[in-house]
């Protein structure tokens, strides 16, 4: 199953900046990125392998395609392509509800719903949220977020007030950034094996790996996942209440999925990788 991430947020929040960073970043993963407008992307012409009108193939294995008039048919056409991608990222339109788009991954057996990342323009969001014509749209976007990126904090006048505003709409953790400079591993997850610690981790964030040989109490793990500062987690667990099963943990911001992945395999150990804000995980380490 291919992880499926939706990047939402109102016009000007920094979605395109983030996508440009993603396409430039040498993450070693093949992304398929569905965007509203090629023109806004800043793609180095030397990296373009093929330009097919509605698609651009890049030398690093990534593919960009324009959504055009129908997200549904564009996505289905992408899934029919022979290319295999490690991750599909959709740029929601500035007025779309990104949660609804993420629902498509729940309906599509070839996809795994990863996360809804909603970008917020720190300089504009207060005014936009109060606008009678778009305020409810902003509210729906914030409510749909698994992770919020409060972008352009250099333009924010009252950061604590903004944090309260966002918290009033959403229980999602907030990453603060300028120029959409956020560690991509936080937004888009670890590599497909989910084992290795991320290679690129900004100063404010860190990761921590756990390994258990014996079955683990479910509540112990849940407590670790629910605490503040946790932004992302991935794990394969042998829980004490289901020792014969592989339980897969997948967490993006406020959204936590635990799913069954068949019988426990002999010789495996339970493994969990957490990504989060450094001071919080620092204290975890001491535990």
């Amino acid at each position: 199953m291919i992880p499926f991430t939706v990047i939402g947020g109102f016009l000007g929040a920094g979605k395109t900046t983030l996508l440009n960073r993603l396409l430039r970043g040498a993450t070693g993963r093949r992304f398929a990125v569905m965007v509203n407008d090629f023109g806004a992307l800043d793609i180095d012409g030397r990296l373009v392998v093929e330009h097919g009108g509605d698609t651009i193939a890049l030398a690093n294995g990534c593919l960009c395609c324009t959504i055009g008039d129908s997200l549904v048919t564009t996505l289905l056409a992408l899934l029919e392509r022979p290319d295999r991608f490690d991750h599909i990222v959709v740029e929601a339109s500035g007025v779309a509800d990104p949660g609804r788009i993420a629902d498509l991954a729940v309906l599509e057996p070839r996809l795994r719903r990863d996360g809804v990342v909603v970008m917020v323009d720190a300089g504009e969001v207060r005014q936009r949220a109060a606008d009678r014509r778009v305020g409810d749209t902003i509210g729906r976007q914030l409510a749909a977020a698994d992770l919020l990126v409060l972008n352009k904090i250099d333009l924010a006048e009252d950061l604590p007030g903004l944090r309260r505003l966002l918290a009033g709409h959403s229980a999602a953790p907030i990453l603060e950034a300028s120029h959409a400079d956020v560690p991509l591993d936080l937004l888009l997850g670890l590599d497909r094996r989910g084992q290795a610690a991320p290679t690129e981790t900004a100063d404010a964030f860190t990761s921590w790996s756990y390994e258990w040989v014996e079955p683990v109490e479910r509540e112990t793990v849940m407590t670790m996942l629910r605490g503040p500062g946790r932004l992302r987690a991935k794990g394969i667990m042998r829980f004490a209440d289901a020792p014969e099963r592989r339980s897969v943990i997948h967490q993006v911001g406020r959204r936590l999925d635990v799913s069954d992945d068949g019988a426990w395999r002999d010789g495996e150990t339970s493994r969990l990788v957490l990504l989060g804000v450094k001071p919080v995980l620092g204290s975890l380490q001491r535990e």
């Binding site: 129908s70 997200l71 549904v72 048919t73 788009i101 629902d103 498509l104 309906l107 599509e108």
Partner: peptide, 18 residues
Amino acid sequence: QEMTAKYMAYRAAGVEVA
């Protein structure tokens, strides 16, 4: 309803229906 209906219709009928 809505996008779910559209997606499932195209999934059932094949995207070439477009």
